[in-house]
């Protein structure tokens, strides 16, 4: 009995030692503040750009930044789920373009034949969501059934879907859309401060943030990314779960396609091109590990905000626009480097 008590005390002591002993203070500090450091970077950027270009603190600048962020945030939410499972979805930008074109083509044709506005809009939106989810389903099935790496599979679908998008309308854009689509892009609440697309993106972030942190689905998403063998041994149907995660990413690309179409009142075959790079950057800046198991929607929102702010901030500060991508690239590498320092302490 005495020995057992000793054993308990030893274990408790070891636990404390593990949390503090031998870890440099800087790393302990970084670990403790967690993803909050990205929020700090965002605040610093807001203050810095605001000092250089006070026009940043105007309604127009806010609306430009927020509207710019919408498509990337919606894609990045799905990308967060995928990256947390240790996967990647390179096809989400292409999926955005394809689903927007497919839905718009249907709407344009229905408008031409019989002009029942409501049905046309509903059918078009549903087709966008369905094609998005469908491409996600295809990605998920190829990855899990053929056991191929997500990077290669989604690189393939990225290329194929991009080509298919041009096939839809011979590479030209679609402009004759129902009036509701335009309204969706221009309507706003709170006396013009909150455009509907921004509201939709934030609502999606809230809902999927709760799904990831508070539900069984979210917990299993982390588990698969953290240790797939452990997840399988725990009786989780890993393949089915992964298919669903890629479907979420595709579905959200469809939603983003709708928002982009609404924003421009037209569907362009080049919409969404290269968006996946910004979406992945936002997720990584937000503190997700590309090796899976870690990442939050909150971090992704901050990461997207940093990218959007860099873009409008540099424009307002009259910096040559070519510097935008240089700056974003530097922030991505910086974020990964900081993450490395933050988690290098015997965590894996």
């Amino acid at each position: 009995m005495l020995k057992v008590e000793e054993h308990q005390r030893d274990l408790a002591e070891t636990a404390e030692e593990d949390e503090t002993g031998g870890v440099p203070w800087f790393q302990r500090f970084m670990e403790r503040i967690g993803a909050l450091w990205t929020l700090g970077v965002l605040v610093v950027l807001i203050v810095a750009f605001g000092t250089v270009a006070p026009t940043l603190y105007t309604k127009a600048a806010w609306l430009a930044t927020a509207s710019f962020a919408v498509e990337y945030l919606i894609l990045a939410i799905g990308q967060t789920f995928v990256i947390v499972t240790a996967g990647i979805d390179l096809a989400d930008g292409a999926t955005l373009g394809f689903s927007a074109m497919a839905g718009s083509l249907l709407m344009a044709n229905m408008l031409g034949s019989h002009d029942s506005g409501g049905l046309t809009v509903v059918a078009g939106i549903l087709l966008m969501l369905a094609t998005g989810a469908g491409i996600g389903l295809l990605n998920g099935l190829i990855i899990t059934k053929m056991k191929l790496p997500p990077f290669i599979v989604t690189l393939g679908t990225l290329t194929a879907v991009t080509g298919a998008t041009d096939l839809l309308n011979n590479g030209t854009e679609i402009t004759n859309l129902p009036g509701f689509v335009t309204t969706l892009g221009t309507a706003s609440v709170i006396s013009g401060w909150l455009p509907v697309p921004v509201l939709v993106a934030l609502a999606l972030a809230l809902v999927f943030g709760l799904v990831l942190t508070r539900t069984r689905f979210g917990l299993r998403t982390y588990a698969i990314g953290s240790n797939e063998v452990a997840a399988r041994r725990a009786g989780i149907d890993v393949d089915r779960h992964l298919v669903r995660v890629y479907m979420i990413s595709g579905l959200l690309a469809g939603v983003a396609g709708l928002m982009v179409t609404a924003n421009f009142s037209s569907a362009s075959p080049i919409a969404g091109a290269n968006d996946e790079l910004y979406a992945i950057a936002a997720v990584v800046i937000g503190g997700a590990s590309i090796f899976g198991g870690r990442g939050t929607i909150f971090g992704t929102v901050i990461g997207t905000a940093i990218i959007a702010l860099l873009t409008t901030g540099l424009v307002l500060a009259n910096v040559q626009p070519f510097w935008q991508q240089v700056a974003i690239g530097a922030v991505v590498v910086g974020a990964v480097a900081v993450d490395r320092v933050r988690t290098v302490v015997g965590t894996d």
Binding site: R216, Y222, S226, N227, A230, I236, G292, G293
Partner: peptide, 22 residues
């Protein structure tokens, strides 16, 4: 209990205990 323990290092202790029968 296998040699590799089959635990998810990124999850908390309680989440590991309940994984698969949450």
């Amino acid at each position: 209990v296998y040699q590799d323990l089959a635990l998810a290092p990124d999850l908390s202790i309680w989440a590991n205990l309940f994984l698969g029968r949450e």
